[in-house]
Simulated scan of single mutants.
Amino acid sequence: MTPQEGLFGWVGGHLWALWGILALLLATLELATLDLTLLMLALGALAGGLTSVVLPEMYWAQVLVALGTAVALQTMARPSLLKRLDTAPGYRSSLGKLVGSEGVATQRITRTEGEAKVNGEAWSARTMSGDIVIEAGADLEVYEVDGPILVVYPVERGELLPRPSIEG
């Protein structure tokens, strides 16, 4: 028997291990996306692996169970899980958390350009309107996030501006 025949023979008898490796790989990749898609595929692979333990010679059944489980979880469980995560108390995206944060202008900020430090991070910034200019060193507050640019206004104690809704 050649070494290749031995390897293929082992794989044929231990297909559950390949399903397990696939499940671990997909679950690990899920950590990079956090979208729950790869997690559903990993659970499908796990179901295929369990099927291979019960029905080791029925490869088609293993694949069908894996695909069926992944599709079912993707269509039924994933949407409700995402909705529960998005509507959880206190949940806001990392950009949404910037709205209302205070910072300091590190460069002069006008309607078209500027830079600010908010929560210890440097951001490109612009003011809400053309008649507002924030000088370097002045305190500011984030009104909204416009892509990679913070829309800010100067903080003058006692003057409050209405904040936009963070929903949607």
Score class of each variant (00 low, 15 high):
161 L>H: 10
64 L>D: 06
93 S>M: 09
40 M>G: 00
121 E>G: 01
135 E>C: 01
115 E>K: 14
94 S>H: 08
13 G>A: 14
69 T>D: 05
34 L>H: 05
59 Y>A: 13
14 H>G: 14
72 A>K: 03
84 R>F: 04
101 S>R: 14
82 L>I: 15
70 A>I: 08
141 E>F: 13
147 G>R: 07
112 T>C: 02
36 L>D: 01
54 V>R: 07
87 T>L: 11
100 G>P: 04
65 V>Y: 04
17 A>P: 04
142 V>C: 05
89 P>C: 08
75 T>E: 07
55 L>Q: 10
88 A>D: 01
167 E>I: 08
72 A>M: 13
110 T>F: 02
61 A>M: 08
24 L>V: 14
29 L>S: 07
79 P>F: 03
53 V>H: 07
46 L>H: 08
33 T>D: 14
15 L>V: 14
9 G>Y: 02
37 T>P: 01
87 T>I: 03
77 A>G: 03
40 M>L: 02
83 K>E: 12
4 Q>M: 10
111 R>F: 14
18 L>F: 12
18 L>E: 03
73 L>W: 04
120 G>S: 07
127 T>A: 02
55 L>M: 14
65 V>P: 00
36 L>I: 15
143 Y>M: 11
140 L>F: 05
64 L>W: 08
159 E>Q: 12
23 A>I: 08
84 R>L: 12
62 Q>H: 06
149 I>N: 02
46 L>Y: 08
147 G>T: 07
14 H>R: 15
159 E>M: 12
89 P>T: 11
116 A>W: 01
105 A>Y: 02
97 K>H: 08
81 L>D: 02
136 A>Q: 02
153 Y>N: 05
61 A>S: 13
76 M>R: 10
42 A>M: 09
80 S>I: 13
61 A>L: 15
51 T>L: 06
152 V>Y: 02
16 W>L: 09
42 A>Q: 04
147 G>V: 04
57 E>K: 14
83 K>T: 11
58 M>G: 09
150 L>K: 03
114 G>N: 01
153 Y>R: 13
93 S>F: 06
74 Q>R: 08
8 F>V: 10
67 L>D: 07
38 L>K: 10
45 A>I: 08
44 G>C: 01
45 A>S: 13
44 G>V: 00
156 E>L: 09
100 G>H: 07
60 W>S: 12
